[in-house]
Computed example of a mutant assay.
Amino acid sequence: MQSSRRRPTLATVAASAGVSVATVSKVLNGRSDVAPDTRRRVQSLLVEHGYAGRPAHRSPAMVELQVSGDLCAYSTEIIKGTLEAGAEAGVPVVITNVKGEPPSGDAWAHGLTAGGWQAMILLTDEANRRQLASLTRAGLPVVVVNPINPPPAPVTSIGATNFAGGITATDHLLALGHRRIACLGGPADAASSQARVHGYRAAMENAGVPVLPGYVRSAGFCYPDGLREGARLLDVEPRPTAVFAASDEIALALIQVARERGLRVPDDLSVVGFDDTEIATMTSPPLTTVRQPLREMGIVALRTALRLAAGETVESRHIELATELVVRSSSLAV
């Protein structure tokens, strides 16, 4: 006698799990934006119900770009580059914005490979080591873009020449005749910020110009950090006539602090940033800054991820792209 039991559907599984059909679909497709407990519950019910989805007609490669935290001008430029390279290669790129603890675990990582993902690109301040370990064990190639600190082997990372950028910014201010030059750095424990500050110190030392007490401060890379530490920096006596800031955001915050104190930029205080995001051209005056090739980083990350997915060996585990100075109106000769 033929069984009258109907073939289970996504809706059946979703109802049993207490989630939406879209969530079940995400689990089936290996999407990372599903909570680990929910993913395990759905995967268990898929097996229990004997669900067999339609055969997937997948592209030769699918890549996920996982962005941690709030989107900003900095991350948007990298996203644009990744999408541009994906379109050129004919590869779908799925962007996932993760807030809080990123997904990890072997079940999650194997779900990605089962869902057809060929590589993962992470745009994050600090790559989660548990997540990286899970992806490595699943055999899924990973590329981390501009990490604060280098990820462990065998993960590949894309960055910029931070040390050279720090030298270039400081040399520019020295060439304008400034001698009381301060540095507003990023997080003290971030390798990228340390390299920028070391570049500043190297340029000052090469020029025989002393770094005065209190002239180097660690902040963060975001606007509120620049407001707080910028105010403290401008309290130092003698007050600096120029500042190299480790990001565009803290440079703009410093300009705001200077204005609140009646200082004119660049007449009373020259400011140089780092990144060259869109906001550098929107401020008044437009910001002199070290251009970090953000869009190109996204392009190189996607191309590198595809090479790794194809089983190729990349020449270097860490790839650095060159920075360059973009002179605008926030810096002036003394």
Rank of each mutant, 00 (worst) to 15 (best):
I121A: 02
G81T: 02
E312C: 12
A219T: 03
A11Q: 14
Q66W: 11
A203P: 13
G116I: 13
V257K: 05
T156P: 07
F221T: 04
V13P: 01
L112G: 15
L294F: 02
T161Q: 15
L140Y: 00
P154N: 04
P150Q: 12
L112T: 08
E77Y: 07
G115R: 11
T170L: 08
A153C: 12
L71C: 12
T241K: 04
D267I: 10
T156M: 05
P293M: 01
P152V: 09
T304H: 01
P224N: 10
Y74F: 15
L176E: 13
V326A: 11
R39I: 00
Q2S: 15
H172W: 06
R41L: 13
A195L: 10
G273P: 11
I299V: 13
K26D: 12
E229G: 00
A87Q: 06
R137N: 10
S134Q: 01
V209Y: 02
H178E: 15
V327E: 12
T168R: 15
V24M: 05
L83G: 07
R261E: 02
D106S: 08
E249A: 11
A15F: 02
R303C: 06
E64G: 12
Q131L: 03
S32H: 11
T38G: 09
P266T: 09
A245N: 02
D235H: 06
M62T: 14
R217G: 02
T289V: 11
A14W: 00
E249L: 09
V326R: 09
V21D: 06
E77R: 07
L45C: 09
Q256P: 08
M1K: 11
R129S: 14
G50S: 03
L65T: 09
L184N: 05
M282S: 15
V272T: 11
L308M: 06
L123D: 10
E64L: 04
A56M: 14
E101W: 03
I158M: 04
R31N: 12
R317T: 15
R317D: 13
G159P: 06
A15V: 04
E88P: 00
L234F: 08
P147M: 03
M120I: 13
R130A: 13
L212D: 00
P154F: 08
E324D: 14
S16P: 00
E324C: 09
V265H: 03
G208N: 07
Q2M: 15
R31A: 14
V98C: 07
Y51T: 02
N146C: 10
R317Q: 13
A114I: 14
A14L: 05
G214I: 05
A119K: 04
K99Q: 11
T283S: 15
P210Q: 01
L306Y: 01
M297C: 08
L306A: 03
A310F: 06
P240N: 03
E88V: 09
A231K: 09
V326N: 07
G105I: 01
G166L: 00
P147N: 11
V300W: 01
D276I: 04
E48W: 01
V19D: 03
D70R: 10
R295C: 08
L302M: 09
I158L: 12
G298W: 00
I181Q: 00
E296L: 10
P36S: 07
R6L: 14
Q118I: 12
S44V: 03
A153Y: 10
R54P: 15
Q66F: 06
S44E: 15
I158G: 09
L123Q: 11
A202K: 06
G177L: 08
L269A: 04
N128D: 15
A35C: 04
G69Q: 09
E237P: 09
A231Q: 07
